[in-house]
Structures are given as structure tokens and as C-alpha cells.
């Protein structure tokens, strides 16, 4: 019988404290899965195979189960995502106010299509559904921050700032 596969990643001590608090908030460990995946995303920058193994080990779930849950949701940062995740809202209210121009501009400026990452690993471009900010359309969410009421000039400035 072989040993269980070793998990290379470890949560930080602060992370472990947070998990302990978290487990006190739910009647079972499984319910803490989404918050623990968020923690992995925060501590390691994205969720890769090893993060899945770690979450599974932490919550006494099977890795297969954790993969199944993780891949149901679209908002976690995954392995290979760039430093900046540009999520262009493409649902109707944004479409009525020009989100296609925003997306085309981003594709043109970054030289990639939606779903791809730039070669320098700086940007990942994603076309996403309603971000719940239709009054400030068009909207692009960059990592956690919303950039609202965008036009082409504003967008170009944003890219310049992110490039640093």
C-alpha cells in the first residue's frame, strides 16, 4: 500500500488560524470548502493541483470531489492566469452600452483573444457574464476591483497604469 500523495503546499500560520475560525462557523468541514479555496487563491495567487490536494487534505474531502466543486465555479483564479485578470462583462446591459468595443480594444492592445494570457504572464483576458454593475456599464473587473463607465481612452489609461 502506498502512502497518500504528499501535498507540497502549506497554508501560512495566519491561514491556519483563519481555517480554525472558519470550521467553528459551520456544522461540518465540507461547508468550509469555498472559503478555503478562496484562502488558497489568496495565499498562493491561484488554485492549482497542489492547492486542490491541500484543500482536500485540510477538510478531509477527496481531491476528486474538490476538483468537481472547483470547476463548477468560474470566479476562482486558476493556474496559468496572468497577474492581472481582466474580466470584461459582456451581458446585455453592458452590451447595450458598448462592451464589445472594450473587448475588441483589449484584444487589439494585448494581442490575445478572450480566454488567453499574454506571453509575459501579465494579463489574462476573460469575457464574463453580468457583474451586477449595469448602471456603470461598460465594466471590467481587474482582479478584485471594478473599473466602471469605461471608454476607450479610460481603458488605455488603465492598461498603462497596470503595466506600470
Amino acid at each position: 500500500m502506498s502512502d497518500a500523495p504528499a501535498v507540497k503546499k502549506k497554508f501560512s500560520n495566519k491561514g491556519l488560524e483563519f481555517i480554525e475560525w472558519l470550521l467553528g462557523r459551520y456544522p461540518n468541514k465540507q461547508a468550509a470548502l469555498l472559503p478555503v479555496l478562496r484562502l488558497a487563491e489568496e495565499e498562493f495567487g491561484n488554485i492549482d493541483n497542489d492547492s486542490v490536494m491541500l484543500a482536500a487534505e485540510t477538510l478531509e474531502l477527496s481531491p476528486g470531489y474538490v476538483w468537481g466543486v472547483l470547476t463548477f465555479y468560474t470566479h476562482y483564479r486558476r493556474e496559468g492566469d496572468g497577474k492581472y485578470l481582466l474580466q470584461v462583462c459582456s451581458t446585455l446591459p453592458c452590451a447595450l452600452r458598448g462592451c464589445r468595443d472594450i473587448q475588441h480594444r483589449l484584444e487589439e492592445k494585448l494581442g490575445i483573444e478572450a480566454g488567453e494570457t499574454t506571453e509575459d504572464g501579465l494579463f489574462t483576458l476573460k469575457k464574463v457574464e453580468c457583474l451586477g454593475s449595469c448602471d456603470t456599464a461598460p465594466v471590467v473587473q481587474v482582479n478584485e476591483k471594478y473599473h466602471e463607465n469605461l471608454d476607450i481612452e479610460e481603458l488605455d489609461r488603465l492598461l498603462e497604469t497596470l503595466r506600470g
Binding site: 461540518n28 465540507q30 469555498l34 472559503p35 479555496l37 466543486v69 470566479h75 476562482y76
Partner: peptide, 24 residues
């Protein structure tokens, strides 16, 4: 409790599944 990008989790039983640590 933060969701993670799934419209269906606004449906109340989908939401509860998600809150239980499952697919929504």
C-alpha cells in the same frame, strides 16, 4: 460566505448547495 461566479447560486436551493460546499 462568498460565492464564486455562478448565476444558479442565486436560486435558493442552488445557493444552499453551494453554501454546503458543493457544486451549486
Amino acid at each position: 460566505h462568498r460565492g464564486a461566479g455562478a448565476y444558479i447560486c442565486g436560486e435558493e436551493t442552488g445557493l444552499l448547495s453551494s453554501l454546503e460546499g458543493k457544486r451549486g
